[in-house]
């Protein structure tokens, strides 16, 4: 599907990317003002990956996500008021305040969860694919992870299991150039992380991760292949994290010039240019405004919600023991 020529797809892509951008900016702001607790991993600059990838999925499909997972949740259709409520430590949050930013899941949209452990979701995605395969279903699992995950043992084990059993999994690497401060150049001997696919006998492709169309095309191909029972693929989407790794990041490992150069490649600005012939200025502005309003409303709703309660904690550990 050409996301730039189809007006509905263009609007949806743009609205998704703006919602992620505005959500992350709001979180950054709430955090800076001391109104949000804990730590946050923001995905500003990386919006094209979840937006392009999730458009290739349909109802019943699954995703696994990462510590930098707000974008995946939003692109997969999570409720941003419940996400915001979780970050604001409210009882109405996705995890009732027990998980926070790194553990948001939305089972209704097949989102099996963000994950605080790098590559933790990779073998889990293989397992979800195994469940589909055992049931004879045609659902697909997209596993999002960063460049850092590709050097974890869990990544190798999970990708290999999916490969040997031809499981319906699409491994989507968001290569944002840094595992915290460790650059891809220092952490890998290969130039392209997609080269790792060859080691598992599966297709691997590297695409421009700041172009939702490129991401969408590659992930769609991989999803079709998986749905047809032809096994997993690896898609490397090259992108860039504008903000620090988390709140402790002083950006000592990269230059201002490097960050500036990538900001010039803003996926949203690029996509707005690409859809200029399809969407009017008013359409584009409407997408932007809808995203802004939705995030404002999410903050309002979340702030009005009751705080997460500690009274049921002990009963929350085991399934089947809730009061």
């Amino acid at each position: 599907m050409d996301l730039t020529k189809d007006a509905d797809a263009a609007r949806e892509t743009l609205r998704t990317m703006w919602t992620i951008r505005r959500f992350e900016e709001a979180v950054d702001d709430l955090f800076a003002r001391g109104l949000m607790h804990g730590t946050m991993h923001l995905s500003i600059g990386q919006e094209a990956v979840p937006a392009g990838a999730c458009l290739a999925l349909r109802e019943g499909d699954y995703i696994t996500s990462t510590h930098r997972g707000h974008g995946h949740c939003i692109a997969r259709g999570a409720r941003i008021d419940a996400m915001m409520a979780e970050l604001l430590a409210k009882e109405t949050g996705y995890c009732r305040g027990r998980g926070g930013s790194m553990h948001i899941a939305d089972v209704a949209t097949g989102n099996l969860g963000a994950n605080g452990i790098v590559a933790g979701g990779v073998p889990i995605a293989a397992g979800a694919g195994l469940a589909v395969s055992l049931r004879g279903g045609d659902e697909v699992v997209v596993s999002f992870f960063g460049d850092g995950a590709v050097n974890e043992g869990a990544w190798h084990e999970g990708v290999n299991l999916a490969a040997i059993w031809d499981l319906p999994v699409v491994f989507v690497c968001e290569n944002n150039h840094y595992g915290m401060s460790m650059s891809v150049g220092k952490a890998f001997k290969v130039d392209r992380l997609a080269e790792r696919a060859a080691a598992y006998g599966i297709p691997g492709v590297t695409v421009d991760g700041n172009d939702p169309q490129a991401v969408h095309d590659a992930v769609s191909d991989a999803v079709h292949r998986a749905r047809a029972g032809r096994g997993p693929s690896l898609v490397e989407a090259v992108t860039y994290r504008w903000k620090g790794h988390s709140k402790s990041d002083k950006n000592l490992y990269r230059t201002r010039e490097e960050i500036e150069a990538w900001r010039e490649q803003d996926p949203i600005v690029r996509f707005e240019r690409a859809v200029a012939a399809t969407l009017s200025d008013a359409d584009v502005a409407a997408c932007r405004d809808e995203a802004r309003d939705a995030v404002r409303e999410a903050i309002r709703v979340a702030n009005a919600a009751p705080d997460a309660r500690a009274d049921s904690l002990a009963d929350a550990v085991y399934a089947g023991s809730e009061a």
């Binding site: 099996l112 969860g113 889990i124 397992g127 469940a131 055992l134 049931r135 699992v141 084990e157 999970g158």
Partner: peptide, 26 residues
């Protein structure tokens, strides 16, 4: 062989696959 599934020597992957399969209803 599908339900009594031999795995490679990948304990982390095996348990992770079980977690994922359990989450997905198995």
């Amino acid at each position: 062989e599908r339900r009594v599934r031999d795995t490679p020597i990948s304990e982390l992957g095996i348990v992770g696959a079980a977690v994922g399969a359990a989450l997905a209803g198995m």
